[in-house]
Simulated assay, not measured.
Amino acid sequence: MDRQCIYMDHIAGTPVAPEVVEAMMPFIGDHFGNPASIHHLGEKPQDALFQSREKVARLIQAEPEEIIFTSCGTEANNLAVKGAAFDRMEAGKHVVVSAVEHYSVLYAAKALQKFGFEVTEVPVDGHGMVDPEDVRKAMRPETVLVSVMHANNEVGTIQPLKEIARCVHEGGALLHTDAIASVGRIPVSVKDLDVDLLSMAANQFYGPKGAGALFCRKGVQIWPLFHGGGQEDGRRTGTENVAGIVGMGKAAELAVERMAVRGAKVRRLEAMLRREIAERLDEVRFNGHPESHLPGLVNVSIRYVEGEALLLHMDLRGVCVAGASACMSITAKASHVLEAMGLLDDGAYGTLLFTLGEGNTEDEVRRAADTLSEVVTLLRSMSPLCQARR
């Protein structure tokens, strides 16, 4: 990575840890065999899959046989939503999702409508929080699946999943959670959360892209999206990406070891970034729950600037962040998350999302805040809305 670049977009993907790269390399080279092969070249890849499954299971306090490896988090979400719904369609054709789900859940649910399913969206409050009672009210006798994410990837709000799980199970449905943003960042226990299905992705906790997993609680059946050779107990058939899975296993192992230290560091840097932004700029709004949110995530809306311009000018100055697209531009697609939170009524805000990681420093936080102040000052000087207020 460019040494001059300040990378604060860890929700899009974390750098791959050197230990992860080292663990993967033998399976790109000498141990290239297919784990399904009977001959000796299949032995080490097969052993590696077994060990990686154990490591990923340990990260979320699951059993190894409850882990299904996928190509990414989006596939895991699709397998959970479509797989659970199709398997239970004789019992009912109603699915409940929250309004702030990732598009891989929302669009998977929308696709079910072509097969006769009905989908109900549960609202959120101004912090992006789902009320468990709203979930209970949305359920019907024919509800077969509810999907509510563990932590939102835009504003970081952590949902009250234990309470939601109680409502869902009392209604006789399955609960899936998209935990892609939270697994590896904060402690996640499928036993404690009492979920039936949980999605995760390696590139969120210093593992490689192209490796994800779905936790499927023992006894829960899902309809496979793929059919073929029977890998992953027939639930996700296809030759496994052994190197990627090994990388995910190693990343999971490191996450267990380092989560507390990583979390403490990014919480400190997050607090510093919020403070530095607030001291430099007026008319800013921090989005998401003030307490129950992912560490290291700062979603900030800034008045009288356009979101895409913010993002591009930050990048030109070497600061890599994400845009939530809650901006004034009619060409930009507004954030459905901020819209669901009721924060798009006044369109005169541009929004940026900073997500910090273990490699960030206090000096980078100060430089990022200085750069943001410089960019906002420039853009406001050209903004007709800002000029009008004067």
Rank of each mutant, 00 (worst) to 15 (best):
V190G: 06
V100A: 00
Q113H: 01
C386W: 11
S325R: 15
R389P: 03
P35W: 12
H227I: 13
L297A: 07
A80C: 12
D192R: 14
D315I: 14
V56Q: 02
L145F: 11
D30L: 13
V122L: 07
M328R: 15
N34S: 14
H39Y: 10
A111H: 14
A369W: 00
M200N: 05
S383I: 07
E118V: 13
F86D: 00
P208N: 05
P15Y: 02
A340E: 00
I245E: 10
V148C: 11
V321Q: 02
T157H: 03
H127A: 01
A326P: 02
A326D: 04
L297G: 06
D346W: 11
H39T: 15
Q159E: 07
D233F: 15
V146E: 00
G212V: 09
L312D: 06
L338T: 01
T14L: 09
G212R: 13
G247W: 01
I6H: 13
G116W: 08
P123H: 10
A255L: 13
I11A: 07
R285S: 15
R185L: 13
P123C: 01
R268N: 02
E308S: 14
D87Q: 15
V100M: 00
G342I: 05
P208Q: 06
L174P: 08
G230D: 06
A85S: 15
G126F: 13
A179G: 09
K137H: 10
A91V: 06
F117T: 08
A243M: 10
T361K: 03
E43I: 12
A252H: 04
D233W: 15
A138I: 09
A271E: 10
Q387V: 06
G296R: 06
E142W: 10
V21P: 10
V298W: 02
L281V: 05
A151Q: 08
V96I: 15
S301W: 07
F50K: 15
L197V: 00
M200E: 02
F86P: 00
A260L: 02
V144R: 05
R185N: 15
V119S: 06
V319S: 04
R274Q: 14
F115P: 00
G234E: 05
F354L: 11
L385S: 09
F205N: 05
A62V: 02
V261K: 14
V119C: 10
M25H: 08
C167Y: 09
L214W: 04
H31S: 05
G359S: 14
W223V: 07
M129G: 02
D2Q: 12
P35R: 07
G172F: 12
E283P: 04
R390N: 14
F286H: 05
L175I: 03
L269M: 12
V195I: 07
A99H: 01
F50I: 09
P18Q: 04
V21D: 11
E19A: 13
R303Q: 08
K265A: 06
A76P: 03
G219W: 08
G323C: 10
N77R: 08
M272Y: 00
F115V: 00
V144C: 11
E364R: 03
A181V: 11
Q204E: 10
S373H: 15
V188P: 02
M272S: 00
E170M: 08
E163R: 08
